[in-house]
Write a protein that binds this DNA or RNA. Sequence first.
DNA 1: GCCAACGTTGGC
DNA 2: GCCAACGTTGGC
Length: 139
Amino acid sequence: MAYWLMKSEPDAWSWDQQVKAGGKGTEWTGVRNFTARKNLMTMKKGDRGFFYHSNEGKEIVGIVEIVKEHHPDPTAGKDEPWVVVDVKAVEPMPQPVKLEVIKKEAKLKDMALIKYSRLSVQPVTADEWKAICKMGGLK
DNA sequence: GCCAACGTTGGC
DNA sequence: GCCAACGTTGGC
């Protein structure tokens, strides 16, 4: 299984909304960047991702699961190449993991979150995943 | 609210 | 195909 990190401004789409949307999941719309698109297209059903609040909060607040693989983004123009995946909330972080805390953690300094801070959909390694789950209070 | 980083666009 | 101009993201 692969791991990911997906960013959303809570003003636009927050973790609470994702939770309320329930187990069927929702389309992750609005990605307009080719690197992020490539990551969306690589995602498989059952992969997991961190849900990160950018701008407001700047912290990882929960875990989502990919419930449907990539298909065309309904919010994009007809001839545009943009895609979405469907994700559902799995569980919240008992303790949200702040960007500033991640930055301080030596073994996380190569995370895409830090190195490519503007990339909205990014891969996470298994080691990074484990470390952050632990920091967030998950086993 | 500012601005650095960086992706995209368009002229040549 | 290069690169300057421009727009956007996101941390501070």
